[in-house]
Amino acid sequence: MLDPHELYQLTDDLPELGQPVLIQALTGFVDAGHATRLAREHLLSTLDAQPIASFDLDQLLDYRSRRPIMTFVEDHWESYDEPKLELHLLRDDAGTPFLLFGGPEPDLQWERFTAAAIALVGRLNVRLTVGLNAIPMAVPHTRPTGVTAHATRKDLISGYEPWLQRVQVPGSAGHLLEYRLGEQGQDAVGFAVHVPHYVAQSEYPAAAELLLASVSRSTGLLLPTEGLRSAAELVRTDIDRQVAQTDEANALVHALEEQYDAFTRGRAGSNLLGPTGPLPTADELGAELERFLAEQGKPGDGPTG
């Protein structure tokens, strides 16, 4: 393996951090409702953020699979949306310092990247790493948003009930980081918020709000969520308006509600990633409702004609 320390540059001018929490918010794998991105952008826009480390993305990113945006105006290239993978220092509403690690998930050199991230965890004396994710599930927007919690030690997520039994899913760099931290005896937690899969391609701020609330609950950080809460209310109103336009859409949401309620009454042996009971399958319900909402316009786009 090439030297992991050569993947990043860390500023020399660091204040006293104590034992900070590190929030990992990489995007590019599964980010239903763009919840991870929304949570990261909300923290960066509402709290003072100081970049303290940057990674060499030329070593990590496959530009052909995720081409950055360039803007062309008349006869010249005006701008280039340069991708960045950075570690920021922020302070919560009580002034407590914490770290936010965000940007595109590496496509390449996962083991080297993971070793570099773990080296930073050690150098900065991080006491807990928290990963954010958002997954599409067969849940209705009319029920409380759920979250799957996982950790390197069970007592780190006491109070959370499992939503899934044993499943195999494609890996991600963020999940590999949590796994490798656990192998080394380091504390790490992850939260995967459940987004109704018929709105998974649209921005769903309710999921981002729950991610930050989950981080606050597990770490004691006082993270701001008011802006996300207001945005979530607007999106909820828009979805309700669109669904109310036809009996068909109402029936589909009602079927998902019945499936959700049956699941919560007896979770053992079930999961909301697949079909349950005599109801139409989750994929059938979600695909039909997604089709309807796409015809009406995405949530948050405003009234449609």
Rank of each mutant, 00 (worst) to 15 (best):
residue 1 M to H: 02
residue 6 E to D: 05
residue 6 E to F: 01
residue 10 L to T: 07
residue 10 L to F: 02
residue 11 T to S: 15
residue 13 D to H: 08
residue 14 L to V: 05
residue 14 L to A: 03
residue 21 V to I: 15
residue 25 A to W: 06
residue 32 A to Y: 06
residue 38 L to D: 04
residue 39 A to C: 09
residue 44 L to G: 07
residue 53 A to W: 01
residue 56 D to E: 05
residue 57 L to D: 00
residue 58 D to C: 06
residue 61 L to R: 01
residue 68 P to M: 01
residue 70 M to D: 06
residue 72 F to Q: 03
residue 82 E to C: 04
residue 83 P to D: 03
residue 86 E to A: 09
residue 93 D to M: 15
residue 94 A to Q: 15
residue 96 T to W: 00
residue 97 P to S: 09
residue 100 L to R: 14
residue 106 P to F: 01
residue 107 D to T: 02
residue 109 Q to P: 00
residue 110 W to Q: 07
residue 114 T to H: 00
residue 115 A to D: 13
residue 117 A to G: 01
residue 121 V to H: 11
residue 122 G to V: 05
residue 125 N to A: 13
residue 125 N to T: 11
residue 126 V to S: 04
residue 132 L to F: 06
residue 138 A to V: 15
residue 140 P to K: 10
residue 140 P to R: 10
residue 141 H to N: 13
residue 142 T to P: 12
residue 143 R to F: 10
residue 143 R to W: 12
residue 146 G to D: 13
residue 147 V to T: 14
residue 148 T to K: 10
residue 151 A to W: 05
residue 152 T to D: 07
residue 154 K to W: 07
residue 159 G to Q: 13
residue 163 W to Q: 14
residue 166 R to Y: 06
residue 170 P to G: 04
residue 173 A to I: 00
residue 174 G to P: 02
residue 176 L to S: 01
residue 176 L to R: 10
residue 179 Y to N: 08
residue 180 R to N: 01
residue 180 R to G: 00
residue 182 G to I: 11
residue 184 Q to F: 06
residue 186 Q to Y: 14
residue 186 Q to H: 14
residue 189 V to C: 01
residue 194 H to M: 11
residue 195 V to G: 09
residue 197 H to D: 15
residue 206 A to Y: 08
residue 207 A to T: 13
residue 211 L to R: 07
residue 215 V to R: 03
residue 217 R to M: 09
residue 217 R to E: 14
residue 225 T to E: 09
residue 227 G to L: 09
residue 242 Q to I: 15
residue 246 T to R: 10
residue 254 H to Q: 14
residue 268 A to N: 07
residue 269 G to N: 06
residue 271 N to S: 12
residue 275 P to V: 04
residue 278 P to H: 13
residue 278 P to I: 13
residue 281 T to Y: 03
residue 282 A to G: 15
residue 286 G to E: 08
residue 290 E to M: 12
residue 295 E to L: 14
residue 302 G to H: 13
residue 304 T to F: 12
residue 305 G to E: 11
